[in-house]
Simulated scan of single mutants.
Amino acid sequence: MDSPQIILRRQLIAAGWTDHELRRRERIGELLRVGRGAYVEAPGNRPRFEALHALLAGVHEERHAGDGVLSHVSAAVLHGMSTWGQRLDRVHRTRDRRTGGRVGGGVHLHAAPLAPHEVVEHAGVLVTAPARTVVDVARTADLDAAVATADSALHKHLVDRDGLARAVARCAGWPGVPQARRVLALADGRSHSAGETRSRLAMQRAGLPPPVLQWKVQGVGRTFEVDFGWPEQATVGEFDGLAKYGRLLKPGQDPAEVVVQEKLREDELRDLGLRVVRWTWDELDRFDVVVERILRAFAASEQRR
């Protein structure tokens, strides 16, 4: 993740700035405070939560580089993994010892064994390696959030299943390892977003037939890839997240064009005899409504046979 350069107060004071000047620059928007005695210069818009957390983690690394390494959700942020559903109000660090963990001052300090291969340098900061990061999140976060992290790590090829299996085996007997095993069993790198991960898990809980992820449908002269597919029921499921439309947007393209193209794409899928069910992020919290639409699509396809 690209983040603005962190500037510490002590560096600015050593360069001749005064606290009065720093407060003035902060007031007029030339500096943004990202932690006690730490700033970024000319930030423009406030960084999104993940970028702000990365900055806070970097500030903490500057001050406590000898006190463990960044880990858990803080390492996930720096590796670019999904952090949906996880708190970003504390910086997480892990020390290579079995006791001595604590929470306070905006920091969650964990105590757990760390092998040399489980620590890597990322943008000049020491963090837990991707596989260890996924397992730590899987041990401690809510199930859906942990699966989203694992899915994104697999999707971005930061980890593979063998590496994750070795990482969780090394943690045998630690708190949360049974859930970590469950998370890894559920993880699937074909999910492109946390929304698709949540959709897949909601379908499983609802007892729907397992969909084909990123189903490729052969159209007239081109192939369509859809988020979820049930070939036997001639039904397509599409999660409409804002991030998805961002991926589809070409340089200089009007977002409205993407919406129109998606509508034409859906019309072509329907012309192939497929039922198309769409849902949004807000509907993930009341997925029973989506399940009803999917089941109606299944029934309508069956009637046409």
Rank of each mutant, 00 (worst) to 15 (best):
L264K: 14
L284C: 03
D271G: 14
G237R: 02
L269P: 00
M1P: 07
D89A: 09
D2I: 12
Q11T: 07
E61P: 00
S152A: 06
A150F: 00
V59P: 12
E41H: 09
I13E: 00
V168F: 09
V212I: 09
A185T: 04
R48I: 13
H155Q: 15
D188H: 12
G246Y: 09
C171Q: 15
W174A: 11
G207S: 02
V73H: 02
G195F: 01
I6R: 02
G16D: 09
A167H: 05
R278P: 09
A145N: 10
G124H: 03
K244W: 08
G219T: 07
A148Q: 09
D227W: 01
V276T: 05
H72E: 01
T223V: 14
Q214M: 07
G16R: 06
R36N: 10
A38T: 00
P4W: 01
R25Q: 06
A146Y: 02
R132K: 11
A256I: 13
A169C: 13
R132H: 06
E232S: 08
G189N: 07
V258F: 09
H117G: 05
A75R: 08
D136H: 00
S3T: 13
E232Q: 14
G85I: 10
A300C: 09
T223L: 13
D271Q: 15
R265D: 08
R182E: 15
A57N: 03
L295C: 13
V59A: 14
V127D: 02
L143K: 04
R97G: 14
E121A: 11
V91N: 04
F298Q: 13
D227F: 02
P43L: 06
V168R: 13
D151K: 05
V217F: 00
V91A: 02
D151V: 04
G237W: 01
R200S: 11
Q253C: 06
D144P: 06
E26V: 02
G44F: 08
R247I: 07
S152M: 02
P4E: 01
L114Q: 01
D188I: 11
Q204G: 14
A57C: 04
G246N: 14
V159W: 01
R24V: 08
G35N: 01
R296N: 14
S191E: 07
R278L: 11
V159I: 10
L284G: 05
R166Y: 05
R265Q: 08
V147F: 01
A129W: 03
D144N: 13
P211S: 04
S74Q: 12
A165E: 11
A299H: 13
G219L: 04
A112E: 07
N45M: 15
R161M: 13
D2M: 10
K156F: 11
G176N: 00
A299Q: 12
V103N: 06
A299V: 10
G229Q: 02
A243S: 14
P210D: 12
A111S: 05
G66D: 15
S3M: 12
P175R: 03
S71Y: 00
A57P: 05
R198M: 12
A51D: 12
K263G: 07
P47L: 03
G173K: 06
I13R: 01
P4Q: 01
D188T: 10
A129P: 06
A148Y: 06
D285V: 10
G229L: 05
H157E: 15
